[in-house]
Design a binder for these strands. Sequence first.
DNA 1: CTTCTAACA
DNA 2: TGTTAGTA
Length: 135
Amino acid sequence: MGDEIRRNMALFPIGIVMKLTDLTARQIRYYEQHELIVPARTAGNQRLFSFNDVERLLEIKALIEKGVNIAGIKQVMNPVSKESEEATVLSEQSEVKRRELSEPQLHRLLKRELLEKRPGKASMIQGQLSHFYKR
DNA sequence: CTTCTAACA
DNA sequence: TGTTAGTA
């Protein structure tokens, strides 16, 4: 269950998610409007995305590139409910934790989470990770 | 960063 | 229908 918590922890602001997914802020908000993702919010009403949210966005991106529309994607992906609630509940403490994490720590965590946990999908994500490694 | 409205192809 | 520009 520890893994699930980590995956649902809201960690990333939208700017980071933009780089990770190569989506614009508009697109990300658009997908949220259509309930494809339900990111947590900070006290200042800013989005905080979990690993699950990022994975979801990458799937959405891939599906849309294949010509699948929002309605189709909704049917393909499991409805957002349980995870989002947990992510929302965790938002407060996650916000604190995010600030406590140093950049290298966050990078390490992200790398481990995306590469170790996803043998099959790692290749798709690796390209996006370059944004995170460089700097 | 957020939200909203309107506009494009 | 998905996405974007301009705005406050």
